[in-house]
Amino acid sequence: MTNVIEIENLNLVFSAHTPREFHALKNISMQVKEREFCILKGVSGSGKSTLLSVMGALLKPTSGKLEVFSNPVSKMPDFHASTFRREHLGFIFQNFNLFDEFTVLENVQTALVPTNTPVAQMKTRALELLSLVNLETKKNTFARNLSGGEKQRCAIARALINNPKLILADEPTANLDRKNSENVIEILTKLNQNGTTVLVATHDEIFEQMVPNLKVIHIKEGMLL
């Protein structure tokens, strides 16, 4: 099986050479293989979000090798990195990060704005995804009026709009109750079974309870255990 993510000796130092210097990621080496469902586990402040941001080309590592789908994403200029993110990655966040003043349907479509996708096609695709996450009935509801669970499902639909082969989720269940967490994990599991690689940063036990063949990576103080 091919590696979706390949990291070797990766380091990230915030505010290097200043009194506030902070070594957030230390000598990280890891792989995530195609079709894997992987969680990155660690306490608060251990570096989960930071590592996810690096993988998503939002942050540049200070040193080391990072390839996602064999692309050296950390060395890409912004324009290519953005296109890469849009075409290959789906991001899901702890606090949903929807545009509150947009409707569900509009939120799902935002990722397609920079593409020249025809309006009708954009809408069809968005509706497809809303039915996948069981949210078609709320398509014209403003995001601010959704419940937490609905918000996260809307965010998942948004992350899926470009058919990403890799999903990066940062504590997607941290703000949800048990029922809604199960719901989100079911969706992620289904996607994973259909061929999407999933990497979740979390300290929620529920993943270990629900996901079969789960790969767990432990992180502590910026180092993998």
Binding site: G56, L58, D78, F79, A81, S82, T83, R85, R86, E87, L89, F91, F93, N97, F99, T110, A111, V113, P114, R158, A159, N162
Partner: peptide
């Protein structure tokens, strides 16, 4: 800032933000 951060994460480039 948050809005822009979200858009960047879902695949908008710097150029796209400026266009918006």
């Amino acid at each position: 800032k948050k809005q822009i951060g979200i858009l960047r994460a879902i695949g908008w480039s710097i150029n796209d933000i400026i266009k918006w």
